[in-house]
Structure formats: structure tokens, C-alpha cells
Nucleic acid binder design. Structure first.
Lengths: 419, 419
DNA sequence: AATCTTTGTCATCACCCTTAACTAAGTAGT
DNA sequence: ACTACTTAGTTAAGGGTGATGACAAAGATT
């Protein structure tokens, strides 16, 4: 126990101030590019001189560059600024239960290349061969690129500090030193995060946050299992360094089915993709094996009553779980990710109705919507890697960049749904 | 008010920097007084010169003062610094279902006077007569005191921005403009907060946090109802401006009893004081009416088997709920407040055991303990009022001071349990 | 007494944002 | 074409922050 004599209080200096502002600044440019210095002045309230100074610094560091001039609006024409997409590349890996996806992203967080492989075999062997494949791809397709970091999203319990996967019931893995393995093969800094947390992070970067200044965002990721990630004050909430998959194992019914975690009636046993497919199997008695929720949605679209009913029930369970959590967290936005969101026209109204009837005061103060990206856990791995580059507001303990809360108030010009 | 186009991004300037550091500084002195400048140098890592400068500033503002000299440790003797307890007083009001307590506190957060009254009658009339009583007390007992603010903790749903109580099922109140009423009578700024959130805030100020650098703290307040408050990164988490009472209305059993909120099987229907007393009534069939959990604990101590069993069952429900939440929040500390904690020797082991058997990975990464103060919702109202004085790191939206996360790493010298 | 250690002050510095005057380059009215 | 005005961006001086290092004060150690 470090008592006296040790420095346990951190004051901030002008240097921290600069770093923080520079981070906000970079995010602003990234979010609204192309943007002129004058726009930045308006958006930040900074003085023109300060803006010029910071811009020049960032240009010197090659993080942004000056593009063409924009149209005049009654005066001198503005010079557009862009973040230098080539200044750094990152790798994103999304380890899924059936298939894993990896992607190369530029500094803007846009995916350049994306490939998927089947997740199979011994974890260590799989990760090694996967990273060799990635390494080869980078060497051939992006020989001159400056790849800076790797973000990995994993469906399970991770030790964020050590970069290991402690256990993943759905993946069937246990004690896998993900970071060590990948860093050895790729020779890049690796950041490991829970998939639901990554999904929440994705919403923070790619989501259309113009409608609401989200201080609190809850992300429910429905895949093989069910996890939740929490954004609080524009920051990914990670409690201890051990990152569990959120409220998926919240008990909803003491007499419910046994969960992969050993308890009974976890939310996951009601609303995860596996639970949904199991329910369909029991309900339909058809011989055709439905392997994915997308197939189920297709069936429902073709008039399969059992499929439709199955989806509706899942929606109800999702709504009930969200209602429970909303009481405790008072989020402004609840985002749902996963294949099930493909049936949003069906499930959306049900979820909202379910929340409405369960909510303590009828005018619901939050919004529920599907995720902005199709595979949130993959897209979330990108900013997780990018935070390595966006130096400055870096938290040593959590290894996550803090996007300042105020930043979220900015109107995002990102398209509604990425591919 | 110059509405500059869209200034929605807030950069920080040197002024903010100073305010933030000064707030940290004040908290440090408050927490470890008496403390010398040299101690502060060691604790903060600041330069001696800087420390002297800030100390002088604070002395000039009468927020702290220089006391006697301390013992030498081989050199010049240090001059002790204290926060000026008389520099400002605040009022704290805890509206309870049966009785309400109000208190006068000094700048150190120590209660000088404390009185309790029965909560009865029409809300508006009650609040008016209560505030007149408080006003009289302040005028007679503290005629010269500089009373700065009022903190109110309410067992119900509050609109933090408006300072109103939207609804409190347990109190039977609805749409009470608490702030407006009190500000009119007391002529002081009034801050209204949910009782469970206040309790969490109390733990932040009075709790012995030296053992753990709490980034996330969950406070479960068990009173007539059951609420939770959440501290994240040293900050009270308030989602939207509407503050619900936390996870008390998390559904645990779809076939459970009907709750005051209208739903079924809320956590509150299992583990709140009312639920506990109801359960005892059903179990014991004795004619003696037990009105408070303290009485129940006394009975258990006298060998009443039914009382003991009742308490044990409540403990189990508490443990189960905490286990559910812990998976989602990964807290470092879970604090339980309320009369039930009087039976900690009984309930503590049960709760821990219950969590252990329900937790996904056996080595529990958090600690469960009773609250540091006897009536956490009252004690929480004090810092809620004090944040009005601790200028600087004040958040306009939530009206709560942000105790910087780093501050929490400091060793607290506060006694373990306040009276 | 001489020397060392601890505590605290002072003047000076580097750095960040602010202020305000300035240049640059366009539009609109006459 | 000329003037007046608007918008965009630069530059230099200035205020305020914590950092730095020399120094003074006061007691302990030898």
C-alpha cells in the first residue's frame, strides 16, 4: 500500500491542456471534414489565432492537411482541411463465434479491405495463422502504409490490462493470451476489448449523434450471446480492468433456462441469437436447420408464422431487459446491434411498446434505434486501435481515448448506416 | 448572449485548468487536514512554488487557513493547513417516508446540528413548515453564519434541472416543486437529488476509499423502497436530467409480486425494507407489529427465528441483484446503505456467498461493504449542497461537482463510520 | 559551531489561449 | 470602376498557468 511519499494525485498542466484540446480538435476535423478554419472558430469558440496555431501544429505533424478552397459565402474563400487518411492505418479484428472478420482501416476510420475467415481449431493456432494471413495481406497490398495498431474485439471476458481473453463460453476459449500472440506475429501494439464494449465504441464514432447530446449511451449487442456496452460522458465505461460482457447475465427469471455461465434465466438465455434460434426450433418443428438469425428473418418475410412469432418474442425480451436497465442507467440512447436488427420494422415497435408499458413514467426519455454500422463489434475495433494514434487524452489504465463529452454535441455528418 | 452560430464544442482554457486544479487541491486539503505544503508537494507532484502560490490564493479567498506548526522531521517545521470550516455552511434535508431529517453542516461536511421531524400532511404545507423551522433554527443558532446552499435528497423520481419531484410512489407525492418551494422560503440555492444518488455521493465524500482506487462504485440504498446510485470516475452518474432511483425496478422475476411502479417482480419487491417487513409478517404470524427493520434486527438478536430467516432471505435477494448488476457494471466497490446494514454480521457473509456462487468467474473483483455513514441519504445531501461552494469544476447540466478521478486514489483519513 | 535536511519563497521561464490589429480575398451597391 | 462591407486567415503582444532553480528560514545531526 503506497501511503505517503508517493504521488497519488494528478494535477494537470498546460501540457495536458494542449493535448486535450488537440484531441478534441482532431476529432472535430475528422467528424466534419472538409472543414475550414473559420468553421472551427465557430464550432469551438476558440480565437482565430489559436485555431491557426493548432492547425499549423497538426499540419506539421502530418495529421491533417490543407485541401482545396471552398466556395465563398460573401468574403474570402475558406481553405478546407482534411485529416490525413494515409497518415496512419490500423487493423481491426473481430473474433466471432462462427466467423471472424479482419479489416484494414485508414486514419479516418474507413475500412479499406475486409476479409472473413471461419473461426475454428485451437485458439492459439487459429490466432497465429490469422495474424500471418493479415501480415501477408498488409505486406502485399499496403507495402508502404504506416500501420500503427491493432484492435481486437472478443465475445467474452477480457483482461484489458494484460490483453488476454479470460474466458468465452460462446467461443469455448479459455485463458488465451490474445495480445501476446498477436503482438508476436504482427509486431504492433494490440488492444483487446469485449465485443459489446467495442460495439458501443463504434456507435460513438460512427453513430449519428446529432439528434441527441448523448451523455449516456447503452449498446445492446445481440449475437451468439448477448452483451452490453456503456458509454458515459463520451467515454467507454470499463469498470475494473476485467471487462465483462455487460448485462447479458442479468438474471430475469429465477426459473429460466440454464445459461452458459451456469446461472439461470440470464437475459442472454432469452434474447440472444442462440436463444432465438433454439426457440424457433422448438416452435416450428420443421426439419430445415436454420443457422442464422438472418435466415430466420428471411423466413419470416416469406410468411413463416413461427419465424415471425419467434422474432417477436425475442423483441419482447429485448424490450423488457432494456426497460429494466433504463431505470437504472437513464440513458439518452439505446442502440441495438446484431443480425436481429435486420428485422427492425418488426422488432422496433415491439421493443418500444414493451418499454413504454414497463416504464415507470410513460414519456420515455430515451431513444431506441438499431446500430449505425452493420457489424458493430468489427467497427468498434477500429477506434479502439485508432486511439493509439490519437495521442493525448489517453488513459493509461483503460487504454482508451476519452472523447470529451462536449465533442458529442457536435452534429455528425456521417451517413446513417455504414456498410 | 451571443449565439455564435453553433458553438457546441467546448475547449478548455488556462482558466478551466486553474479551476480544476484548485478543486482537486481543496479536496486534498479537506481530506487530509492538517496537511503541510510539503505534504501537498509530495501528494500532488506539483512544484513547491506552485503549491505555495495556490495555497496563498486559497488563503486569500478564506477557503483555507494556516494553523499551528507541526513537529519537525529533521528540518524546518511545517505549517499545518486546514480548510476553513466556517467559511461556508450548508443545509441538508433528507425527506424520508416516515421521518425527514435536516442538518446544518460546516464547510468540512461535518454536521453541526441535526433534527428529525415526521413526514406528514400535504407535501407543500409540509415543506413550507419544515423550511420555516429550518430558517428559524439558522437565524437563532447560527445568526452570523454564511449559509450558502441547500441539498435535498428525495426518495423518488426527480427532475434535476427543474428541482422538482416528479413522482414518489413510496412517499405518495407527485409533481412537487421542491426547489421552488424551498428557495422561496429559505432564499438559498436548492439542489434536489434522488436519495440513492445522494447516498452514493455520500460514500464518495465520507467513505474510506484508501483501500481501493474506486473508478466505479455502486451504492444500493435499502429503505422503504430500494434504489441504486452510481459513481463513475469519481463522478455521480446522472443519465438524463430525469433521475430515476436506479435499478430498484429491475425486474427479477416475471411472476413476482406487483410493485408500486405497476410492474412485477422488481428488485424492490424482494429486498426493500417494506418487502422485508411484509415477509416477516407472513412468516411469523405474530401479533406484534414490527414497523422498522431495526426492530426486526433486534428481534433476530433476541432469538426470533422468523426474524432471522426473514433477514437472511433479504440478504440473499440483495446478493442476487448485486450479482446481476456487477456483471454489467464491473464496480470496484459495492456499498449497501439502510437500516438492514445494522445486521451486517448476518447479511454480509450471505450476500458475499450469494454473489460468489452467482458470479461468472469465481474470484470476485469487487468488495461489498456497508455504507460509511448511518443515514447515507442525509449525508449525501451535504456534498450536494457543498458543490455549490466548491466552485470550479461545476457541471452546468447536472449541477454536480466533479471530484476528479485521480483524487479518489488518495488515502482518506476519515473515520470508518460517522455518527 | 559546522553541516545537513526539510520547509517554504521568489524571480524567471515556457507554454497555452486571448486580444486586437492586420492582410487577403471575395461580394454588393453605386 | 470605385467604395463599402463581409468573410478568412495571420501575426504579434499579453495575461495567466504550472515548471524550474536559486535562495532563505529553521531545525536536526555531528
Amino acid at each position: 500500500m503506497k501511503r505517503h511519499g508517493t504521488q497519488n494525485l494528478k494535477m494537470i498542466g498546460v501540457r495536458d491542456l494542449r493535448d486535450i484540446n488537440q484531441t478534441i480538435f482532431l476529432h472535430l476535423v475528422r467528424d466534419r471534414q472538409p472543414i475550414s478554419r473559420a468553421d472551427i472558430v465557430k464550432a469551438t469558440g476558440l480565437q482565430p489565432g489559436t485555431v491557426s496555431a493548432i492547425v499549423n501544429r497538426l499540419i506539421k505533424e502530418k495529421l491533417i492537411y490543407e485541401g482545396i478552397e471552398g466556395p465563398s459565402s460573401g468574403g474570402r474563400r475558406p481553405k478546407y482541411l482534411h485529416v490525413n487518411a494515409e497518415s496512419a492505418y490500423v487493423l481491426a479484428i473481430d473474433l466471432g463465434v462462427k466467423e471472424s472478420i479482419y479489416a484494414v482501416s485508414d486514419f479516418n476510420g474507413r475500412i479499406l479491405t475486409q476479409k472473413s475467415v471461419l473461426t475454428e481449431g485451437d485458439p492459439e493456432k487459429f490466432l497465429r495463422s490469422l495474424s500471418r494471413e493479415i501480415h501477408a495481406l498488409v505486406r502485399t497490398q499496403y507495402p508502404r502504409a504506416r500501420v500503427e495498431a491493432v484492435g481486437v474485439s472478443v465475445p467474452g471476458l477480457v483482461d484489458r490490462a494484460a490483453g488476454t481473453l479470460i474466458v468465452s463460453p460462446n467461443l469455448g476459449w479459455r485463458a488465451v493470451p490474445v495480445r501476446a500472440l498477436l503482438e508476436e506475429e504482427l509486431e504492433l501494439p494490440v488492444y483487446v476489448e469485449n465485443d459489446a464494449n467495442a460495439a458501443a465504441f463504434a456507435e460513438l464514432w460512427y453513430g449519428p449523434l446529432d439528434e441527441v447530446s448523448a451523455r449516456t449511451l447503452l449498446c445492446v449487442l445481440v449475437v451468439e450471446g448477448l452483451g452490453t456496452g456503456l458509454i458515459i460522458n463520451g467515454e467507454l465505461h470499463v469498470g475494473t480492468s476485467i471487462g465483462l460482457g455487460g448485462f447479458g447475465h442479468m438474471s430475469m427469471d429465477p426459473k429460466g433456462m440454464t445459461c452458459s455461465c451456469g446461472r439461470r434465466g440470464c437475459w442472454e438465455t432469452f434474447a440472444s441469437d442462440r436463444a432465438t434460434l433454439d426457440r424457433y426450433r422448438r416452435l416450428s418443428k420443421s426439419k430445415t436447420r436454420v443457422r442464422a438469425v438472418t435466415e430466420l428473418i428471411a423466413l419470416a418475410g416469406q410468411g413463416d408464422a413461427a419465424a415471425l412469432e419467434t422474432i417477436k418474442v425475442t423483441a419482447r425480451y429485448l424490450g423488457e431487459g432494456i426497460a429494466s436497465l433504463a431505470h437504472g442507467l437513464s440513458p439518452e440512447v439505446v442502440v441495438i446491434g446484431g443480425e436481429i436488427t435486420g428485422a427492425w420494422p418488426i422488432i422496433g415497435p415491439i421493443i418500444e411498446g414493451c418499454i413504454k408499458s414497463n416504464y415507470i413514467v410513460p414519456p420515455i426519455s430515451f431513444k431506441v434505434r438499431p446500430s449505425s454500422v452493420l457489424r458493430p463489434s468489427l467497427f468498434g475495433a477500429i477506434p479502439i486501435a485508432l486511439q493509439h494514434c490519437f495521442g493525448g487524452g489517453r488513459d493509461k489504465q483503460t487504454n482508451h481515448v476519452k472523447v470529451p463529452q462536449s465533442f458529442l454535441n457536435s452534429g455528425s455528418r456521417t451517413p446513417a448506416r455504414f456498410s
